[in-house]
């Protein structure tokens, strides 16, 4: 059975804004959409502009981030029900979460959904990143 996914209105507006900006060639003007760590020659752009959705009853949110806002070394700030989820980047460009070091995902969104699957119905994140 595939879990219900609901994208919040805010996110939909955000996506439209991003699409419009891309059409104008002005993506770079949006702070926070900068390719994380590109200056360090690490694997390429995150490929999507952030997310905010309810997946299996949990709210998952994520956006590219730099500096102190980053949750883990993956270049993203991701939360599940408001609690930070540490993401790490693999050499092939995929993402791992602190909940599961052995399954890699193509995107931070997929990694966040995978973390929710692993949490199941009865567990929550402690807020500890590492």
């Amino acid at each position: 059975m595939s879990p219900a996914i609901r994208v919040h209105r805010l996110t939909r507006r955000h996506l439209i804004a991003v699409a419009a900006a891309a059409a104008l060639g002005a993506v770079g003007a949006f702070r926070g959409l900068r390719e994380p760590r590109a200056e360090e020659g690490l694997p390429g752009p995150p490929g999507e502009p952030g997310f905010d959705e309810t997946y299996r009853g949990r709210r998952i949110q994520g956006e590219p981030a730099t500096g102190a806002a980053v949750h883990g070394p993956g270049g993203w700030r991701v939360t599940v029900d408001g609690k930070p989820l540490g993401l790490m980047r693999r050499a092939d460009g995929s993402y791992l979460s602190m909940l599961d070091h052995y399954q890699s995902y193509a995107t931070p969104l997929a990694a966040a959904r995978g973390a929710v699957d692993e949490l199941g119905a009865h567990q929550t994140l402690s807020g500890r990143l590492h």
Partner: peptide
């Protein structure tokens, strides 16, 4: 063990 889990996409 937690502190030393560094993934290979991480530049350190």
């Amino acid at each position: 063990h937690i502190d030393f889990y560094v993934s290979d996409g991480d530049d350190r």
